[in-house]
């Protein structure tokens, strides 16, 4: 890949933006405002029945983007596409780690068989590995 040198910025990642200045009141960013208006505030049932589950699903979708885009997806993990009820807190780095170890163990153990589920590479991956089932998405 030949890249033109357009300045002294060395291959900045396209989505990276410098953090905004802090410490003073600013116009609300969309995440802040959605978080509050959609997810907080007084709940009184009006005459128009809003399906709160719909709203919760939406906010959960927004939350899932936090972990999905930067971390899970780049590792080829797509559990979040199948199980929208999982929250960020329930799926921390520990699980991400475990998922990765499982995949590593599978790849090293049986490079031509994704369904193999052998577990030789990393002892800490044991326990999750059973009956060739590595997907948590449809658990």
């Amino acid at each position: 890949m030949t890249e033109q040198q357009t300045g002294d910025v060395p291959s900045a990642r396209p989505y990276y933006q410098p953090p905004s200045l802090t410490g003073r009141p600013q116009p609300a960013n969309l995440a802040d405002i959605l978080e509050r208006v959609l997810d907080k505030g007084i709940i009184i049932a009006g005459d128009i029945r809003v399906n709160l589950l719909d709203i919760e699903l939406l906010t959960i979708k927004l939350r899932l983007l936090v972990v999905s885009v930067d971390k899970a997806e780049e590792m080829g993990i797509d559990w979040w596409k199948h199980d929208p009820m999982l929250t960020v807190r329930e799926r921390g780095l520990d699980e991400e780690n475990r998922e990765l170890r499982e995949r590593l163990a599978q790849l090293e153990g049986t490079p031509d068989d994704e369904e193999g589920g052998q577990d030789e590479g990393d002892g800490s991956a044991r326990g999750r590995q059973s009956a060739g089932s590595r997907s948590r998405g449809d658990a």
Binding site: P19, N29, E35
Partner: peptide
């Protein structure tokens, strides 16, 4: 304490 936010919505990069 609230859940972390999507960087594309918050405009803030890094791990929250």
């Amino acid at each position: 304490q609230l859940p972390p936010q999507d960087p594309r919505l918050s405009g803030l990069s890094g791990t929250m």
